[in-house]
């Protein structure tokens, strides 16, 4: 068991959007000692009151299997899909990144943001707030590059993900 390697998985969960459902999911993860690398949630079908929770987690194959089974056991959960192993998927995250600086650093930050296709959503004479979307590694890389150029703070949404192809999950 312990020899198995841990890997990162993105798990998509369709739930009834009822009071407490997010607390149930988070409580399950903390109560059983599973990792949460990121978690996003929002209602995705207003008429059916359904929300999608996207969880990025890591663990051995046995732990990931447990996580899926435990999620499936929650009463308001409709479906659980491991997007990492059960299908091909696309994953995107959005981040807002605040960078302050003057002179060369400021020019360099702006130049790099263009290379990353980030947009400027706020600017003052000595700062920018960039909006960037992409997979989480791209955002990690962008934030790392901004660090020496005057990174002040960042706000990230966590990953949203869907299976590729025409079918819903």
């Amino acid at each position: 068991m312990s020899e198995q390697a841990t890997a990162t998985h993105t798990i998509s969960v369709l739930v009834d959007n009822e009071a407490g459902v997010l607390a149930r999911v988070i409580g399950l993860f903390s109560g059983r000692g599973y990792n949460i690398d990121s978690l996003t949630v929002a209602e995705v079908d207003q008429s059916a009151h359904m929300s999608r929770i996207t969880i990025v987690t890591s663990g051995t194959p046995q732990v990931i299997e447990q996580i899926k089974a435990q999620l499936g056991r929650l009463v308001p959960v409709h479906r659980v899909v491991d997007l990492t192993v059960e299908c091909e998927s696309v994953e995107r995250e959005l981040a807002l990144v605040k960078v302050a600086g003057k002179g060369d650093a400021r020019v360099e930050a702006l130049r790099l943001s263009e290379a990353f296709r980030a947009r400027v959503v706020d600017a003052t004479p000595e700062s920018f707030v960039f909006e960037i979307t992409g997979n989480s590694e791209k955002i990690d890389a962008f934030i790392e590059l901004m660090t020496p150029l005057g990174l002040q703070e960042a706000s990230r949404t966590g990953a949203a993900a869907l299976a590729r192809g025409p079918e819903p999950m």
Binding site: M1, Q62, E65, Q66, A69, Q70, G72, R73
Partner: peptide, 11 residues
Amino acid sequence: IDPSSINKNVV
């Protein structure tokens, strides 16, 4: 009857 009991402690 509980899928989460499968492979939880023993594979």
